[in-house]
Write a protein that binds this DNA or RNA. Structure first.
Lengths: 218, 218
DNA sequence: CCGTGTGAAGTTCTTCACAGCC
DNA sequence: GGCTGTGAAGAACTTCACACGG
């Protein structure tokens, strides 16, 4: 199986497999079957084999998957076998936290530019980066080959931030603001909002009230 | 259509509709058709009607949806027509940011307890909450009727944090750590990890390289 | 013999198309 | 006339079941 359309859910699961595999590798696990990995990830074993099959044949029949190999293969599949260069726009609380966050490099990302339109913030240095004016984004970013823009502005500034990123030819956007943003078709957008997950919980909790709380059937 | 199984994707979309509707209401929009809302949310109009139909008949044929009504109906559907009480465990950078975050009340949540096992943090006051020892969680939480626990510990402490929450009879968990956690069946878990979204972007960017960057066909 | 890789079957979710109602 | 609500059709995703190969 090769180069068909790949479900979005597959990509999300690959990210989960990767995390779990790295934890297992840290514990010294060298080989794992789809069944064991499935238990750890709480998915169906066939699902794992199918997900991996989109990208190649990484396992050994009768044996399983060699963990370090599989980690590398998934990284290649997801495109995180290299460092992606990121710009951030919106240096509020969240923006600052992300700029200071240490975990980007080992996951394959590097923040190389920060923008905010507040004159009091422009020129400030955070985590080794000087905050710049977004009006000059295009020229400042030209030689940085930035592939991802992160929006951490307030809701009402998000669309303007997106416009700056698009004008600067940044081909993809991770949007932490609560606003829906509109961009040309060739620009990829992902939304991050943990309230969506909270709503998923409140919905399930509400539903559970009618069905009664029976305990785990094990 | 009533009380069938409701797709998880529907819940996520309802959260999006809610955000967009609140923005529109702020702009003075009083009535909206599924088609107009669909454009704003970038989904199919039938999808919206179907999603809403799971919960009732909120529209008027020939007219559309009355925006304030629809906002209220979606809140009831998601269970955010009231305040949910939340406990947080893990007072690191992320935990502190969340404790200080002002946006919970208007989305229907209130953080009422904070825990960390670091003796230097226990007793510290953050945003009006005293950090407590998780070993005493069960007794401290008994009369707080907490329904959601948020895990913001480092990866290697996440399972222990989850155990404390489960022992304290907190029925649902929002996990910001990178660890998969294992809990009894009756406990609901949601995972928040923005790297999943970054991987979705790197995957699409990689895929695009082979197909070439053609511009928006509009 | 065991676990992967994969067509086929099964299930779930989305979109269509139109009846029903304001 | 216009837009919702919804059964039916269609598309997408997941699971099964077994052939294949180490």
């Amino acid at each position: 199986m090769k180069s068909k359309h790949i479900p979005r859910a597959t990509i999300q699961r690959l990210a989960v497999y990767l995390q779990v595999l790295e934890a297992l590798h840290g514990e010294g696990v060298e080989v794992i079957s789809s069944e064991a990995l499935a238990r750890a990830c709480e998915v169906n074993p066939s699902q794992i084999r199918k997900d991996l099959a989109y990208f190649g044949e990484f396992g050994v029949r009768g044996v399983g998957y060699y963990v370090p190999n599989l980690i590398d293969s998934i990284k290649v599949s997801l495109g995180t076998d290299r460092i992606w260069r990121v710009a951030l726009i919106g240096v509020g609380n969240l923006g600052r936290s992300l700029l200071r966050y240490q975990g980007f490099p080992k996951r394959g990302f590097k923040v190389v530019a920060a923008f905010d339109c507040d004159p009091f913030k422009i020129g400030e240095e955070i985590a080794g980066l000087e905050v710049m004016c977004p009006r000059r984004m295009k020229e400042n970013v030209k030689d940085l080959s930035i592939e991802i823009g992160i929006i951490t502005t307030p809701t009402d500034r998000a669309q303007r931030a997106a416009n700056y990123l698009v004008e600067s030819n940044i081909p993809s956007i991770l949007n932490f603001s609560a606003a829906r943003i509109h961009v040309p078709n060739h620009v990829h957008v992902e939304y991050v909002d943990f309230f969506h997950h909270l709503y998923a919980l409140t919905f399930k909790l509400n539903a559970g009230e009618f069905q009664g709380h029976d305990s785990s059937p094990n």
